[in-house]
């Protein structure tokens, strides 16, 4: 990404010293990252590095052990998914989090149903809105009355993405959003990310595809065994540099090393 991002004002999101342990496993250990408006920030790392857990603490799905979250510079109380939604933080979960027995529009509006003046759910209106938003992502989608269990992986993913985008998110968390998508659909998500970015939305993107991270993201954070290896501006490093961060935990010159970086390499650099 070549557009210059202003990183002088208040960050949209600032997570400081986030901690989460499951039993003896320190899934996330003292990680601090930030995100500015109109910025796409990648979060990378090996399987089990703690990426999803870090994101789930931001989306309120997991209660953190320690750490602070600031939204627009102000300390935010995020203890459950409702809190996160109230800060306009929307999430596409890695395992999509869809109710398989409900159709696309019921899933899209789950927890935020549109209602009639009498307070009943307005299924027709929700279906109309779903057709509009889904039409942008997967123009060929027709199965609006099928439980999402009967949809393909990519179609399910489109439902999850539509849900996150529909409600005017300020901050979007995408945990491997293109994992199940075809070429055409991936292209649509890439276009969508660009469009949302232009609207000033901040996006946290988890992706294993380094090439995609290079093209989509402005900055990238790399995690290893729950610790932050470092933060880099993607245009200032090579794909090999990023691979080195993920595999060896080496923070390249120009990057800001985190607590998880190998010290000797920093000293040498």
């Amino acid at each position: 990404m070549s557009d210059k991002i202003e990183r002088t004002g208040k960050p949209l999101i600032e997570m400081c010293n986030m901690q989460k342990a499951f039993g003896g496993i320190r899934a996330v250990d003292g990680v601090s990252i930030d995100l500015y408006p109109g910025e796409v920030v990648g979060v990378l790392g090996h399987n089990g590095a703690g990426k999803s857990v870090l994101m789930k603490m931001l989306s309120g799905a997991i209660q953190r052990d320690a750490g602070e979250i600031y939204v627009n510079g102000e300390l935010a109380e995020i203890n459950n998914p409702r809190d996160a939604r109230s800060y306009q933080i929307e999430t596409i979960y890695q395992y999509l989090a869809l109710a398989d027995n409900l159709d696309a529009s019921s899933n899209l509006f789950l927890g935020r149903e549109l209602t009639t003046p009498l307070g009943f759910v307005n299924d027709a209106l929700m279906e109309a809105e779903t057709r509009k938003i889904m039409g942008r992502l997967t123009p060929n989608f027709r199965r609006f009355h099928t439980p999402v269990a009967g949809l393909s992986g990519g179609q399910r993913q489109s439902v999850a993405i539509s849900r996150a985008v529909y409600f005017n998110a300020k901050i979007l968390i995408m945990d491997e959003p293109t994992a199940a998508l075809g070429v055409q659909e991936t292209k649509m998500v890439v276009d969508l990310v660009d469009e949302l970015k232009k609207q000033g939305i901040g996006i946290l993107l988890i992706d294993h595809d380094i090439h995609q991270v290079k093209t989509l993201c402005d900055r990238a954070n790399v995690m290893k065994n729950g610790k932050l290896v470092g933060t880099v501006v993607v245009d200032e490093v090579t794909e090999d540099d990023m691979l080195g961060m993920i595999i060896a935990g080496k923070c390249p010159p120009g990057g800001i090393p985190g607590p998880g970086a190998i010290n000797s390499d920093n000293a040498a650099a």
Binding site: A61, P81, R85, A97, A99, N101, R112, P147
Partner: peptide, 21 residues
């Protein structure tokens, strides 16, 4: 009603229901 929708959603996927607030 929303209550009904939530009952079915929770039955289909309790975790998803929780994540939906």
């Amino acid at each position: 009603t929303r209550l009904g929708r939530y009952i079915y959603a929770t039955g289909g996927n309790p975790e998803a229901a929780q994540l939906a607030g």
